[in-house]
Amino acid sequence: MSNLYFRDIDKTNVCIVKNIKLKPGQDKFIESIEKCLEEAKAHHEWHPVAIYSDEEIIGFAMYGSFGSNKDTWIDRIMIDQNFQGKGFGKIAMTKLIDIVSKEYGVNVIYLSIIEENKIAHRLYESIGFELTNERDPNGELIFKYTRKF
């Protein structure tokens, strides 16, 4: 699992990325990949990436930084149903935190989740994200990660 890495989405991998499937019922917690890619095309602040293990695409993520305060978000992450429950999500989030922190020069990263997504809630808290007691414009719970040196 240490061979987990990210690549930009381009014509060589977009079809495979679009075929990532979640477990039944998980689609109510996150937008479709097609919608994410449309959003990234319309708002260039978003950076969509494919998550690889060795040479196999196992997931998708999207992150970005906005405004003069550089509010930085890991906005979407999903692991294909065939790779869930194997620790890939936690490894991917940990690596994304490092990449995003360095790319944008920030120590604070945000994310939001639908309140009913208890599995994501536990995962993010186990990594070090803390609930802010705020909600985003869609009513999702906002979590904040402060990078410690």
Rank of each mutant, 00 (worst) to 15 (best):
N107E: 13
G87I: 14
H121T: 01
K90I: 01
E125N: 11
Y63I: 07
F129K: 02
M62C: 09
W73T: 00
L123P: 03
S53I: 07
I127A: 05
N107T: 08
I99V: 15
S126D: 04
D75W: 11
Q84D: 05
Q84F: 12
R76L: 15
K118L: 15
Y104I: 03
N69L: 14
F66N: 04
D71N: 12
E125Q: 07
F88C: 10
D54M: 06
I97C: 06
M62A: 10
K95H: 05
L131H: 07
D80H: 12
N69Y: 13
V100M: 03
N82I: 04
G67D: 07
I113L: 14
E130I: 11
E125I: 00
N82A: 12
G128R: 03
F60S: 03
I99E: 09
E55K: 15
I109L: 15
V106T: 05
G85W: 02
N107F: 11
G64P: 02
N117R: 12
S126G: 05
A61T: 13
G67S: 09
K70A: 10
Y124V: 04
K90L: 03
F88D: 06
G59P: 06
G85Y: 06
N117Q: 08
L123R: 12
E103W: 00
G128F: 07
N82H: 10
K70V: 12
I57A: 04
G59K: 05
A92R: 00
Y63A: 04
I119S: 09
I51A: 05
I51H: 00
L96I: 01
E55F: 14
N107K: 13
V108R: 13
W73A: 05
D75R: 15
G59T: 06
L111E: 10
F66W: 13
E115N: 12
S112A: 05
K95I: 07
K90G: 03
S53E: 04
I113M: 10
G85E: 07
V108K: 15
N117G: 04
Y110F: 11
S101R: 00
F88Y: 10
T94D: 14
L131S: 05
W73F: 08
L123M: 09
F88N: 12
I58M: 14
I99F: 06
Q84S: 06
V108P: 05
K102E: 08
N107P: 03
Y63N: 11
F129M: 09
I113D: 09
N69S: 12
K90Y: 08
